[in-house]
Every structure is written in C-alpha cells, then in structure tokens.
C-alpha cells in the first residue's frame, strides 16, 4: 500500500471517529437527543372509557348509588350516564328532581331519602329515548 492510500484511510477513519465521538458525547450531555426515535414507537393513548361511554349508551345507566346498598346520611348523590343533553326526572320516596345530562351523557344530582328502604328511578324524558333505571338504597336509622 502506498503512502497516499494510507494517509487517505487515516483521514477517513479519523473524520468518521471524530463525528461518532461528537454524536456519543452529545447524547450523554443532551439525553433527549434521541427522543424522536422513542416517540415514533409509542402508541397513541386509547380514549378513556368514560369519554366514549355516554356517546354509545341508549338507556339510563345509574353508577351511583349501588343497588341494594345502604347509606348513613341523606341526601344521596345519584349519578350515571344516558344520552347526551337529555332531560331526566329523578324520582324517589322523599323527593323528585328534574336534571340534565351533559354533552357526554353524564348526569349527577342529590336526592333526599326517607329512613328505611327507598326505590329511586331515573327516567330519560326524551320521547325518542324514553327509558328508566331503578336502584334500591336504604337509609340507616341513627339512634
């Protein structure tokens, strides 16, 4: 191998090693330098269940109170999901309330209970989506 080729190889290797050294040095100093590679393989987050639940429901789903449960204080919070922007009638032994669901179909209202067992109904008053759900909840007696 002649002198010219040897010098060329040395120059090429040196230049390459210098650039490689610069790259590795930079990644240690700036850890996020490789971030574009990482973000490329992260899957997009799936939508949360509560975000889509209201959009698909056709009836009334009461999430709270749990059926056949007991509580120690009145009023109770009645919440759940139904069709979006619906008018609801929440009807119980001691009180009744008109309520509305939001754009996602979520609703929530407080309702007074009488001592002992109460049966609560939540009715969607939209004539096109008329439906009802019921729950039994008992208000314990505090001596």
């Amino acid at each position: 191998m002649d002198k010219e080729k040897t010098i060329t190889i040395i120059i090429g290797l040196t230049a390459g090693l210098v650039l490689a050294g610069v790259y590795f040095g930079a990644t240690k100093i700036i850890p996020n330098l490789r971030k574009p590679v990482e973000t490329a393989i992260i899957q997009p987050a799936s939508p949360k269940a509560e975000d889509t639940k209201g959009a698909s429901i056709t009836g009334v789903d009461i999430s709270d109170p749990v059926d056949n449960s007991s509580i120690t204080v009145s009023p109770v919070t009645v919440s759940g999901t139904t069709t979006p922007n619906a008018t609801l009638l929440i009807f119980g032994n001691a009180e009744e309330k008109i309520a509305s669901s939001d754009a996602k179909g979520n609703f929530s209202a407080t309702l007074k209970l009488e001592e002992g067992e109460n049966e609560i109904s939540v009715t969607n008053l939209d004539p096109n989506n008329s439906s009802v759900a019921k729950r039994h909840v008992t208000l314990e007696i505090n001596p």
Binding site: I9, G12, L13, G16
Partner: peptide, 8 residues
C-alpha cells in the same frame, strides 16, 4: 475516504 468514513 468515503469507505473509511462510512465504516467509522
């Protein structure tokens, strides 16, 4: 030169 650069 290009070959050595690439290898490095």
């Amino acid at each position: 030169l290009a070959l050595c650069f690439t290898v490095s």
